[in-house]
Design a protein around this nucleic acid. Structure first.
Lengths: 346, 346
DNA sequence: TTGTAAGCGTTATCAC
DNA sequence: GTGATAACGCTTACAA
């Protein structure tokens, strides 16, 4: 095998050409500078033979552009974010950009540090799914004109490009579906109440109830975290009520796993004894004991659009246009909701 | 808010100090060069006030070290790899390294390109979970003395640092457990037969059978992919046998989801009608219709050890020591396996 | 105790 | 058609 060459100087020397010429050929500017076809070909071949690839660090320093973007997410082990990350990576790479992955662990201080870190890495832009409990540092970033796109957890106060699901619609649809099947007493197990997606889902739930003349019972709106334990705990409480609800709306997939665990333990069956609908579709949703009815988010679209918008900013420098995109959610109907209508038995 | 300063020159000018001094303070060499406490403090304060963080690109060019490592995995949307990625990112950042994430999509050619890409990014090292069907390009990397650690999919031919689960033991334990409960006819739904983890799991299965005087029936060793469809299809076939096996050993979690789907459709119950054991523990394993007995891999340990080994290579330059680490797997016993022993009923 | 200046590998400007 | 050279922001040997 050929031994490889590490800098353009060496390659130029080997070819007995100037660095300039080699650089021009390798950057596709051969025509522009009317470099002879022969030379062009020789350079290309040599680069291949000697396994030369330009040093992006040096290039970045010179061009003030690293072809690198930073991605900050709260938890890569959450399949929701993993799927988004995958689509972002794929799309970014297709466009010639690499990804620096940062996991904030849902910690606001870590998130702040990560932004500085990405800054010092001179990334060309940032996509962030914020922790969501503070946005000043994010606004600050965009004040420096560093392109930035927010995904998933938006905030009404800030006016930055944001791509998210239409959580209101998802919450509304799920609730309306339950109501359409005769459910009137619907518990709602929330995730983080302060987070915007949660607020929106809840708003959808409330509006759907109102629109159907169902009185909101605050005691049925419970929970405080997107994790499974929360779903479990709240369900145990719900099931021990004197007159329990006929359905549970779980605000995340992990919450619904907790619901299932609790019902299993209590010896109750879904949907015979209690109905369940959950936010977040997962690969296994269809294969649970009772295939689960879910509100599915367009995860890969979120990633794709985010990167598209970001690259538009990076490449065209047009910025601060109020991009605010809400993606439709889909209700995937399976078997975890029972119809209470007497007409059809289901 | 203070306006920020973008290079060390400006900061030095503002402080009326030389670039050198500022650089030294910021790199913690104040003592070494006996810089006055006063100056040191002034520099630190100014750096903070003006929100200065060194340009890692320039730094990298100068130092030939980017404090960046590349991570190549076949599929970040697979929770197994997402968990590993998370532990790697966390550990790396704690040690001052950032991560460039690359998803090969299980495509060997993409994998090769990604290695070049990471090279041109001048990463200080690479952690790779290879596609596994070719290793030449990986060997080549390590010939260039670029530190590299392999995770999950190893190969016997190459002698590079590798961290993986003890797939043989996992396969053996799972099979032995089934046998201990009286199962004698055990189907085995494989993933990619050529991949090393798969081969090892199968070897474990075979040895466990042999050690218990069970004759291997090749017709019971089926399947060809780690995906769900494979599990579904093979299970349908298995269930339609004249004298079907009493247990199925699924080689991945997705495969076992397919198994569950097929048994559900056929109206059979796990474990009453057929027992199931699966490789890969997942958050939902415990909350399936029948809580599943699984072989759990130490995902975060794999990540942690991989980064530890890699950083050792990067920092100490001691290389090519034959690190080959197999991590113990754990059998998590739940309810998906039925005892055929007459003594205990369960 | 602090400063000057070379050089990391590229690309762009200007020159021939 | 091709080449010499400055500059990108940083660290560090060498000076003072």
């Amino acid at each position: 095998m050929n031994k490889s060459v590490n800098d353009i100087r060496e390659l130029a020397r080997l070819l007995d050409l100037s660095i300039t010429t080699v650089s021009r050929v390798l950057n596709g500017k051969a025509e522009k500078y009317r470099i002879s076809v022969e030379t062009t070909e020789r350079v290309r071949q040599a680069a291949k033979d000697y396994n030369y690839s330009p040093n992006r660090i040096a290039r970045g320093l010179k061009l003030d552009r690293t072809d690198t973007i930073g991605l900050i997410i709260p938890d890569i082990s959450n399949p929701f974010f993993a799927d988004i990350a995958q689509s972002i990576e794929k799309e970014a790479r297709a466009k010639g950009f690499s990804l620096i992955l940062c996991d904030s662990g849902d910690d606001l201080n870590v998130e702040k540090d990560l932004i500085s870190l990405l800054r010092s890495h001179k990334v060309d832009g940032i996509i962030i799914a914020p922790v969501g409990t503070g946005f000043e540092h994010i606004v600050e970033v965009s004040n420096t004109r560093l392109p930035l796109v927010i995904i998933d957890r938006c905030s009404p106060e800030i006016h930055l490009p944001t791509i998210t699901s239409d959580n209101y619609q998802g919450g509304y649809d799920a609730t309306a579906y339950l109501i359409s099947l005769g459910h009137k007493k619907i518990a709602c197990i929330q995730g983080m109440p302060e987070s915007y997606p949660n607020k929106e889902r809840l708003r959808g739930y409330i509006d759907a109830c109102r629109d159907n003349n169902i009185i909101i019972d605050d005691d049925l709106i419970v929970g405080d975290s997107f994790v499974m334990e929360n779903g479990y705990r709240q369900t145990r409480i719900i099931l021990s009520m004197e007159d329990p609800p006929t359905a549970i709306f779980a605000f995340s997939n992990l919450i619904s796993l907790g619901v299932i665990k609790a019902t299993n333990e209590t010896g109750l069956k879904i949907p015979d004894d209690i109905s369940l609908i959950s936010f977040d579709e997962q690969p296994y949703s269809a294969y649970l004991g009772t295939p689960m009815t879910t509100v599915s988010q367009k995860k890969s679209e979120i990633g794709q659009i985010a990167i598209d918008v970001l690259l538009k900013f990076i490449l065209k420098k047009e910025y601060r246009k109020g991009v605010y995109m809400k993606l439709k959610t889909d209700l995937i109907i399976r078997d975890s909701v029972k119809s209470l209508k007497t007409s059809d038995s289901k």
